[in-house]
């Protein structure tokens, strides 16, 4: 399915390119590192500037570089009709593409305290959290417990299930994006529990990182995604 999506997107991109301007023979869309909507040091003391800089400039950039590389190889393999290479590339696409998708969400999930980071959600998302989990505190406890128990590298997510119309907590391994856990899941909030997300500051104490990250969670962003999915959701 992922392959078909990619192919479709590429075809569309190609059509768009061709119709708007003359381009090189190959119109393969590449991805580039999105800017952070705040300074590297702006999330301190919850997350150090050094971590943010490495995480954004090095880790996220590497996923993008390798994603672009894999997509280019995929493009060539499809043009050549090289089925085995197309299949072989899937794991690199999932890992690096997932790394790009996940980190792009993660940056938007964070905000400096003076810009509203850590401010609890109001409106329909706040109401939905109370309904599904009892309280925000209990949601945080659950996500922290799942994040701490996750073996190895991965992510813990707060998601809305579009079909069941309810909030769920999920974890994904490595850089698997949330969609691998269900096509109807929309990520509201993803917390990176790879060691690179906290090691320079928190070392082996992942639970402390999880405890502190809530001080800089951007609930406004999560709310806007939620309200976008459910425009008519009941507000208090």
């Amino acid at each position: 399915m992922a392959l078909r999506c990619l192919a479709t997107r590429k075809t569309l991109a190609q059509a768009a390119f061709n119709s708007t301007r003359l381009t090189q023979s190959r119109a393969l869309q590449t991805f580039s590192l999105p800017d952070l909507p705040y300074d590297y040091g702006a999330l301190e003391p919850a997350i150090s500037g050094e971590i943010m800089q490495l995480h954004h400039q090095k880790h996220h950039q590497t996923y993008i570089t390798n994603y672009n590389k894999a997509l280019e190889q995929l493009h060539e393999a499809i043009e050549k009709g090289d089925a085995s290479t197309v299949v072989k590339l899937q794991s690199a696409i999932k890992f690096n593409g997932g790394g790009h998708v996940n980190h792009s969400i993660f940056w938007k999930n964070l905000a400096p305290v003076r810009e509203g980071g850590g401010e609890p959600p109001h409106g329909s998302l706040g109401w939905a959290i109370d309904t599904n989990f009892g309280s925000l505190e209990s949601l945080i406890q659950k996500m922290n417990a799942e994040g701490a128990a996750l073996q190895g590298s991965g992510w813990v997510w707060l998601a809305v299930d579009k079909e069941l119309k309810k909030l769920v907590i999920e974890t994904t391994a490595n850089q698997d994006p949330l969609v691998t856990k269900g096509a109807s899941l929309v990520p509201l909030l993803g917390i990176d529990v790879w060691e690179h997300a906290y090691y320079l500051q928190y070392k082996n104490v992942r639970p402390d990182y999880l405890k502190n990250i809530w001080e800089v969670i951007n609930w406004k962003y999560a709310s806007s995604v939620y309200e976008n999915e459910f425009p008519s959701a009941r507000s208090p």
Binding site: A148, A149, L150, E195, N204
Partner: peptide
């Protein structure tokens, strides 16, 4: 269980 999960017990 991740090592990190129980780091507080490590001491």
């Amino acid at each position: 269980m991740a090592a990190a999960a129980s780091s507080s017990m490590a001491t």
